[in-house]
Design a binder for these strands. Structure first.
Lengths: 110, 110
DNA sequence: ATAATCAATCGTAATATTGCAATATACAAT
DNA sequence: ATTGTATATTGCAATATTACGATTGATTAT
């Protein structure tokens, strides 16, 4: 069907899945890395750096923005993006909680 | 096009994106949580616990298995799954490296 | 051997994603 | 006002994902 049955899962499960999905593309990984590494907002340089068309990058930025991972603000002629600290904190703690469920290697499944 | 241009990104970016994509579905989050919390392999109980059809769950398990996040072994009449510790370690460290790029709030984009 | 049980696979329908050309919008500089 | 520059949106084609009924394969119990 291509339609996720979101209603049978918890809010937290859906939220984490959506955050991961927003990051689950090499172009969006690259964009996030670029923004993080520059340690400031990044304005327009993305097109040309990644080998993707302007329309495509704009679309990826929109996706990251709509989930709240980044935020943009107009800076003169161009638009600047940076990590949204609030969502980022949620992401970090949610991921940590998720990964913490793993208690280490078990003796089954050998 | 629906076809990711994997060749223009690094091996690491593609690998992380694929791992995240494998987890980026509430059903697969739920499955992983269930396996982790039980702290042992989990055999067949998944169908009926999540509200999805057997074929659907089998498909999600296959996806998790094909990326290496879980592994399965036949145990009598049913099949058991558990976290694959090797891939899990890679996931944890890759994620940590990725998140560590974030240096905290900046003074731009206000 | 036959029936029962469990999981994998196949086939298919509905929907989502990816990518880009073309176009539109917004603003600055002339 | 017009031109140039930067970003967003639209429309579309190709491909991928999600879900499940039906079937198949494998194993156990009778």
């Amino acid at each position: 069907m291509g339609l996720t049955k979101a209603d049978i899962f918890s809010k937290e499960q859906n939220r984490l899945a959506m955050l991961l999905k927003a990051m689950a593309h090499p172009a969006r990984i690259a964009i996030l890395q670029r923004i993080m590494i520059s340690n400031t907002c990044i304005c327009g340089d993305l097109v040309g750096e990644l080998g993707l068309a302007q329309a495509t990058i704009s679309q990826h930025l929109k996706e990251l923005k709509s989930i709240g991972l980044i935020k943009g603000s107009i800076k003169g002629t161009s638009v600047c993006y940076c990590i949204d600290p609030d969502t980022w904190k949620v992401l970090e703690s949610t991921l940590q909680d998720f990964l913490a469920n793993y208690k280490g290697e078990t003796i089954c499944c050998q």
